[in-house]
């Protein structure tokens, strides 16, 4: 089996991370921002798995499990926030939720 080289994986994950980061910074819809965060998270996960496999070490893959668990919790909290924002404002635009700044 011809393994895909690590460099390709890293290029992919960098690209995914970039897309996610751009989404977080540029989009206004909270849902999209949340999804972009997930994209960045998973880009890192892919990088960890790929690196773990390339080096023959298991820790990277183990770490991804933790990360997935945390991501699940984070999504739960995040979606709850989105629902709360939707209910109170009727919109889910991040710029409208800046009422807490000084």
């Amino acid at each position: 089996m011809n393994a895909v080289p690590l460099g390709h994986w890293l290029l992919l994950t960098t690209a995914l991370f970039g897309v996610g980061a751009a989404g977080v910074l540029l989009r206004r819809n909270v849902m999209i921002v949340l999804m972009s965060v997930e994209l960045m998270l998973n880009a890192v996960n892919i990088a960890l798995v790929a690196a773990a496999r390339a080096h023959g070490q298991i820790e990277g893959q183990l770490f991804v499990f933790f990360s997935l668990t945390v991501a699940a919790a984070e999504v739960a909290v995040g979606l709850a926030l989105v629902v709360a924002i939707w209910r109170s404002l009727g919109r889910t635009d991040v710029d409208d939720v800046s009422v807490m700044h000084g």
């Binding site: 980061a21 977080v24 910074l25 991040v94 710029d95 800046s98 807490m100 700044h101 000084g102």
Partner: peptide, 14 residues
């Protein structure tokens, strides 16, 4: 630098 715009913070972190 601390204007309360979260995306500004995100950009600077990035």
């Amino acid at each position: 630098w601390q204007g309360g715009r979260v995306r500004g913070y995100g950009l600077s972190i990035l």
